[in-house]
C-alpha cells in the first residue's frame, strides 16, 4: 500500500465504475434473471407462469438429461486428463533448448488460436468414413478404418481427439510459465549429489510446478464442461443423442425447443458446478501468490 500524498484524495472508483456497470448489465443481470426464469414456465411466445421447482423436478426425472450428464462426465474426464498429461510433456520439451524452438512452439500453439467452428469443419471432413484422410492414414500404418463420429461407441473419444488437439497448447503454456520461474539452486545441488534426470524431475521440478498444473487442471475442467462449438458443429449431439453433453442439451432445450424456463434450470445447475470450480481456481491462484 502506498502512502497517499498529502492533500490528495485517492478515489479510484470512477475508473472502475463504467466497466462495473457494463459487467452488471451483461453478466450479473443475466445470472440473476436466469435464477428467476428457472422457477417459471417460460415460452418464447412470452407466456410466463410461476412453477416453483417444477423445472428442477422434471429435470431430475428426465432420462435424456441424465444421459447428457454421463456424456459430459465421460467427455470431461478424457478431455482433462489427456491434455494435462500431454501438455506437461510438451512443456518439458519446449522448456529445453534446441534450434528453431520459437517457431516450433509457435506452430504448436496455433491450434488454440484457430477459430473453433473452422477447426470443427476441417475435422468433420477428415473423419469422413469413406473419403476421410484419417482412415487413409490408419490404413498406412496397418490399422482398420474407424467410424469416428458416425458411431455411438466412438463418437465421444473422437470428439476428445479434437479437444486435445485444440487445447493441449493452453496447458503447455501454463506449465511453461511455471518452468520459466524455476530457481536454479536446487538443480545445482542435485547435480552435485549425482541425482538422475528422473529424480530431479520427481523431487524438484514436479513439486515446484504443481501449482501451475493445478491451475491447468481446473481450467481444463471448466473448459471441458463448457465445450460447445466443436461438438455442436461436428455432431450436434448425435448420432441420436450419443454425444449430447449438458451444454448441447441446454442449447437444444433453449433454442431448438424454446423451453426457456427448463433450460434455465439446467443453467443454474451447470453454473453452480462451474462457480465452485472457479472458486477453487481462485483459491489455488492466491495460494501460489503467497508462496512466490
Amino acid at each position: 500500500m502506498s502512502i497517499a500524498a498529502p492533500g490528495v484524495e485517492r478515489n479510484y472508483w470512477p475508473f472502475v465504475l463504467p466497466a462495473l456497470i457494463v459487467v452488471l448489465g451483461v453478466i450479473v443481470f443475466p445470472w440473476v434473471f436466469t435464477l428467476f426464469m428457472s422457477v417459471h414456465d417460460w415460452n418464447v411466445s412470452g407466456a410466463v407462469t410461476f412453477v416453483g421447482f417444477e423445472n428442477f423436478r422434471q429435470l431430475f426425472t428426465d432420462a435424456r438429461f441424465y444421459e447428457s450428464v454421463l456424456h459430459t462426465l465421460y467427455f470431461t474426464v478424457l478431455a482433462v486428463v489427456l491434455p494435462v498429461g500431454i501438455g506437461l510433456a510438451a512443456a518439458l520439451v519446449f522448456h529445453r533448448e534446441f534450434k528453431g524452438r520459437g517457431i516450433l512452439r509457435g506452430i504448436f500453439i496455433m491450434p488454440m488460436m484457430a477459430t473453433p467452428v473452422a477447426v470443427a469443419l476441417v475435422w468433420t471432413m477428415m473423419f469422413h468414413p469413406q473419403l476421410g484422410v484419417l482412415n487413409y492414414l490408419l490404413g498406412l500404418v496397418g490399422l482398420p478404418p474407424s467410424t469416428w463420429v458416425y458411431n455411438t461407441k466412438t463418437v465421444i473419444p473422437t470428439l476428445v481427439i479434437v479437444e486435445v488437439w485444440h487445447w493441449t497448447p493452453l496447458v503447455m503454456l501454463i506449465v511453461l510459465g511455471g518452468l520459466a520461474n524455476l530457481p536454479t539452486e536446487p538443480y545445482e545441488a542435485a547435480e552435485i549429489d549425482g541425482a538422475s534426470s528422473f529424480q530431479k524431475f520427481r523431487h524438484i521440478t514436479f513439486p515446484l510446478i504443481l501449482p501451475n498444473l493445478m491451475i491447468a487442471l481446473i481450467l481444463r475442467t471448466i473448459d471441458a464442461l463448457k465445450a460447445f462449438d466443436t461438438i455442436y458443429v461436428i455432431t450436434q449431439g448425435g448420432p441420436g443423442t450419443a454425444s449430447e453433453t449438458m451444454n448441447i442439451f441446454l442449447y437444444l432445450q433453449a433454442f431448438a425447443y424454446f423451453k426457456l424456463g427448463y433450460a434455465s434450470a439446467v443453467v443454474v445447475i451447470f453454473f453452480t458446478l462451474v462457480i465452485a470450480l472457479s472458486l477453487l481456481l481462485l483459491h489455488v491462484r492466491q495460494k501460489t501468490k503467497w508462496n512466490a
Binding site: 443453467v267 453454473f271 481456481l281
Partner: peptide, 15 residues
C-alpha cells in the same frame, strides 16, 4: 474472473 469461467450459454437466454 468468474465471468470468464461461466459458460457463454448462461448469459445467452436472458440476453
Amino acid at each position: 474472473m468468474i465471468a470468464r469461467m461461466t459458460p457463454a450459454l448462461s448469459f445467452l437466454i436472458p440476453l
